[in-house]
Design a protein around this nucleic acid. Structure first.
Lengths: 188, 188, 188, 188
DNA sequence: CATGAATGAGCGTTCATTCAT
DNA sequence: TATGAATGAACGCTCATTCAT
């Protein structure tokens, strides 16, 4: 140790640590699920537990931080798809995208329904951001007569989530059951 | 050691304990989920933990034992329903029944996908018994032209399971998303 | 197997462990106060922490167990002293005895007023047993006109306790301040 | 105060921080006791923990600094009371004042006897300043024949302290046990 | 000088599992 | 065979304290 150099170490590396933590959390969540031991994440990030707790006083905040950017991007995609595609197509494409998001997030859906109070804030986060996005797509598709108009976006969101946590389907296509569900939406 | 003899007496009390354990496990699983503490189950059964471990060296065996009879009954119902109802109706009724089974089994579906090696044997159990049952229903309904013929019974089983662990819906009716899924099965 | 020997090891050494724990707790309480780490006590007793928790699910119960027998003995002494000595003398002797008890219990009085919910049950234990004992002595001494009759036994008990946790006074005599307090009790 | 030292600039801001820390510590000590987390105090003062540690390398120094002015004032009151009241009355009044001081200092007395080396310097501080003050009162009262002359002021100080940390008695009156103790002082 | 991010030991507590009886 | 006491690893979390900036 005590190398003469090292532009390394502290400074504004609070930021560095935060990044390291987010990255580590993403990795660990994927490997061991969202309720992996706090220490495992801290170690993976190369920091002490205290540092983890400093940045994220509770689990939900960490999970939220890890997924927030992707959630935002997914929500934003709704408007874009709607602008560039016919309603039902936009809906299907968005579901595909959402499906991919969920499939990647090993353990996210488990956490959502774990009932563990540590995750209480999570559903609100997801539903709050993605619910309206999906609602806009459903409204448009219903308006154009492609699908029925009695579908609760939140329920659908959960359902697709429940169906997608399996089978990360390498090509990114939603799995057959999701497609079946989408078929069920159609007006007959 | 391993004497070839004694096909006999299972020691009445051993049998009693086993029954007590199964009953207790059912109760506790319903109350606290399938990964409730081992001791909680033993206590509920009025036996020592050691006894629990003697009869069920690992969790999956206990879970399997607990659900086996119900699984069998559910599987058996397929033939009955098929005998008494038109194919598609039989299918819907059976799904309803299965739905109720899952909704009742607090934590079963979580366990199934927990990845925990303790539960490795479970999916095979369920799929092995219920898969064929559902397959027979699907075949009949497809043969009568009511539904498409490209649905994998195992996938459908899992899907309905995934959608049903929510909302125990007091009247026993499958929730809206399951109905949507069933709608998607229809030929168009 | 069933070798005829070794009366050693386990068996009813739950009892042995319990004794070891009580002894250890007494030692550790004396050394480090009643909120010494649980592990310290377990280690001192030569058992695992789990064993400590098995026997005493919470701190107050351990503390209570450690002190109960002595508390009982102290309470019982009141009647005896009253039978063999004039009231005021009995009172003084009992206070002396109580004083010795407290002085020995390093940290007991700290615990009593720590406000820590872990010790919530303790005051009731002490006051419940010793309060009536002291009350009987005060009543007798007041009846004989030796002391005033407006002294709350519980307050006095606490006061003597507060004054006695200091200065274990090797000869077992109450310290000067306790004597002053007792003087204050006298009718004038 | 009135130290003959440092006639030089104390860096106005350093002084400000110090004041802020003292005020904050007083507040926090009152709210959470003297072993409140260091960070809580620093935050309350609006400074970083580092600053706290710079000014007060250990807890006792902080506690000492916080209470010093009040201790001084209390000590000074002895002479004033003695000048304006008969000896025994002055003594009682001073005790009342001291009693109030202690009752206000949530946790001070606990700290004093915690044995924690962090507080080693505290007793000397208190005793050093208040001991002589009380001694002067005791001497006067003893000289006038009102009280006995064999009372150790330090012991009495501790005793009153021990009895006063309870029952902050809203009207500022010493509690009954303190009054009993004072009664015990009287010549008979 | 001040800051506050970082560290990591340490605590209470739970539970799966073993094994002497 | 049944029992349940014992074990101890593991976890979440808190803070005193240091030190790079």
């Amino acid at each position: 140790m005590t190398l003469p150099t090292e532009p390394r170490k502290v400074r504004a590396d609070a930021r560095q640590n935060l990044d390291a933590l987010l990255t580590a959390a993403r990795t660990v969540f994927a490997r061991s699920g969202v309720d992996a031991p706090a220490r495992e994440i801290a170690t993976e990030a190369g920091v002490g537990v205290g540092t983890l707790y400093r940045h994220f006083p509770n689990r939900a905040e960490l999970v939220a931080a890890v997924f927030t950017s992707e959630i935002d991007a997914t929500a934003a995609a709704a408007a874009e798809l709607l602008a560039e595609h016919p309603p039902k197509e936009a809906l299907d494409l968005w579901i595909t995208r959402f499906t991919r998001f969920v499939a990647t997030k090993q353990g996210l859906s488990d956490a959502l329904r774990s009932g563990d109070p540590a995750f209480d804030a999570l559903p609100a986060l997801l539903m709050g951001k993605l619910g309206p996005a999906l609602a806009s797509l459903l409204d448009a598709a219903a308006a154009s007569g492609d699908i029925r108009d009695d579908v609760d976006p939140l329920e659908l969101l959960q359902a697709v989530g429940d169906l997608s946590h399996r089978a990360p389907s390498p090509d990114g296509t939603p799995n057959p059951m999701v497609r079946l569900l989408l078929d069920g939406l159609r007006t007959r």
